[in-house]
Design a protein around this nucleic acid. Structure first.
Lengths: 148, 148
DNA sequence: CCGTATCCATTCCGATACTG
DNA sequence: CAGTATCGGAATGGATACGG
């Protein structure tokens, strides 16, 4: 019986993270949540995904405490989905995905959306990996160590 | 006819990026490549995934120019997989995934691997989203603008 | 050692119909 | 509007067998 194996017991944090948000919809739902989307139909219309898939993904995100269900701000009978702190902490991941996509997945002059600073209306700084002192590191300047 | 829809034509760079690397294996293959893995069997043994899936994912990564095939350094008949510049630029994404996983997906004192600076042996700085001047931004301080 | 090919179960996902 | 239920096709993925 072939059972899908998960990485939830992995010692590598990347593997666990991929296990939680490494599919084709979860991060896009989170992206929309950052943009203020909170209702089922808004997600559905905005993303264009099937409702059963959206329902399933929302349940998973709530189970992982990335989203939480709130009792509806406008008095309507239905609830809303909002980011938790754990969900808001995905911000750097979304920004790094965005910057990589902007740099490598669009032709010159092809239209794409950009992320701007509210105050200055200027593009954000490029995310760079740095050491404790703030010096930018190349991939070869970092290494993985297992801890116990 | 239900056909899987893609985001390759999307104007949102996050959506395009998810389309390319948003599955359960691609980023883990890239992570291993950063660790110096270059041979088919090494990936396979290290990740524990089925060979047909690995084969398929490697082909896709090469097609997207994230990996490239090199003619084998040690003189053997087979080739090696190496990161391109586009692939190395995924570094910030992997580090942000790692840091989120470290912070939210492990119990206290549960063993996990860490990423250290080669020189100082100290943990890396936490990746933070910042404006052009370097000021750290909350998610609410950034907004998306469509450009044409 | 490096893959490809095939089989089969599971999962994903879109489409549609339906309920409150 | 906010979902749930169900269907069928497509993709995922593990296991195994096979060929270079």
């Amino acid at each position: 019986m072939p059972k899908r194996l998960t990485h939830e017991g992995a010692e590598c944090p990347v593997a666990r993270a991929v296990d939680v948000i490494g599919d084709r919809w979860s991060l896009l739902i989170v992206r929309d949540a950052f943009d203020g989307i909170s209702r089922f139909s808004e997600f559905q219309r905005n993303l264009g995904l099937a409702k059963n898939i959206l329902s399933s993904r929302l349940r998973e995100l709530v189970a992982h405490e990335i989203l939480e269900v709130l009792p509806a701000a406008d008095g309507s009978a239905y609830h809303e989905y909002a980011l938790t702190q754990k969900g808001r902490d995905l911000f750097a991941i979304l920004v790094s995905l965005r910057q990589w996509g902007e740099g490598h997945l669009f032709d010159e002059a092809e239209p794409h959306s950009v992320l701007l600073d509210v105050k200055t209306k200027r593009p954000l700084r490029k995310l760079e990996v740095a050491d404790a002192a703030g010096r930018i590191l190349e991939p070869s300047e970092a290494f993985v160590r297992k801890v116990d």
